[in-house]
Design a protein around this nucleic acid. Structure first.
Lengths: 177, 177
DNA sequence: GCATATATGTCAATATGACTGACATAAAAT
DNA sequence: ATTTTATGTCAGTCATATTGACATATATGC
């Protein structure tokens, strides 16, 4: 198999006198880039598999996890906010959100400043399900982070931010090193 | 907003005399772990959006991309191999693979040592589509890697490998630092 | 106050990706 | 010769997402 290391630019390994490389110069070979693509695919695939199994017990799908996750993470979130995060249509959201409200996992109350808005929150049962679902994922990250160490985690965060579109990236700003 | 940095253990920042921390000790706080979860979600969401738009022009979906990607990456791949990578059922694969074969993007020939096997390969048109689709993703990684630098990329790779299940992780082995 | 814009909800039709279960065929392995 | 393996296929179902149209309540601008 191809040796990936030969594909990875070393720090300070620039050709002499080649001038300052552009910060996003693509000195990265095909192999390194494809490995990145594949790691993202496999990580996402494996990362979603465990919660999916729990969700299935409740007759829910991955979309339900996403909703309880973000509502739990940002209590008082509006429907618009949620749509913006998930980047799906309101009709798609309506099905899962409606189920969760009807099943008593999410409550929506009218906004105070703007009564057209629906501010979303988890109920106790919603919190419980969210924690059960996300616990596996937190554990996975805790192990990966713990094994990799703080410097690797900082590198991970930097690369991930670079992969995310500008607007979503701002959610993580003010928290860089 | 919560300051993530307070959540990130610093190298050598252990309490004095606390003994050696386990390599995967969860010194990581809730906030850091949730940010990891969210980064993975947003990165995957944005990373798939561009190819999806191209695929739609051809009447294809994300599943078609995955098939042409892995067939292109591993020419001569068997149907079993592909099922193992995608972790979907053969009935799910049959629909997309059948379309791609019929549309002349993928060819399958009988195996030599084992004639039950179907060895998959891209045709010229398959290669062309695969490159068009993956080009956006390679560019995205090239920019993220280039901006982050080699050390950050190495950290990214380490963390990502830690997130991936053991069996799939082996695909990337022999290429660590 | 009236017109318009915004936030949300809802009905209908459709596409895509996935599943389970059952059965078929050809070729390898024992 | 029997069994196992690799693949294909038919049928039904479910979850997620889409576009398009329309409805309602509330906020905002004039």
């Amino acid at each position: 198999m191809t040796d990936i290391k030969s594909d990875i630019p070393r720090t300070g390994g620039d050709q002499a006198g080649a001038g300052p490389p552009a910060p996003d110069a693509s000195a990265w070979g095909e192999e390194a880039l494809r490995q990145g693509i594949e790691m993202l695919f496999f990580a996402y695939r494996d990362f979603t598999a465990e919660p999916d199994a729990i969700l299935a017990e409740h007759g829910y799908g991955r979309a339900h996890h996403r909703v309880v996750y973000f509502v739990g993470r940002h209590p008082g979130l509006t429907v618009s906010d949620l749509l913006g995060m998930l980047k799906i249509t309101k009709q798609s959201l309506a099905r899962v959100l409606g189920q969760l409200v009807q099943d008593g996992l999410v409550v929506s109350r009218a906004g105070i400043r703007d009564r057209r808005q629906r501010l979303l929150e988890l109920t106790g049962r919603g919190i419980e399900l969210e924690r059960r679902l996300t616990e596996r994922q937190r554990t996975r990250f805790a192990q990966a982070f713990g094994h990799a160490g703080p410097d690797a985690v900082e590198g991970f965060r930097t690369v991930m931010l670079g992969l995310i579109d500008e607007d979503a990236r701002q959610r993580f700003e003010g928290q860089d090193s």
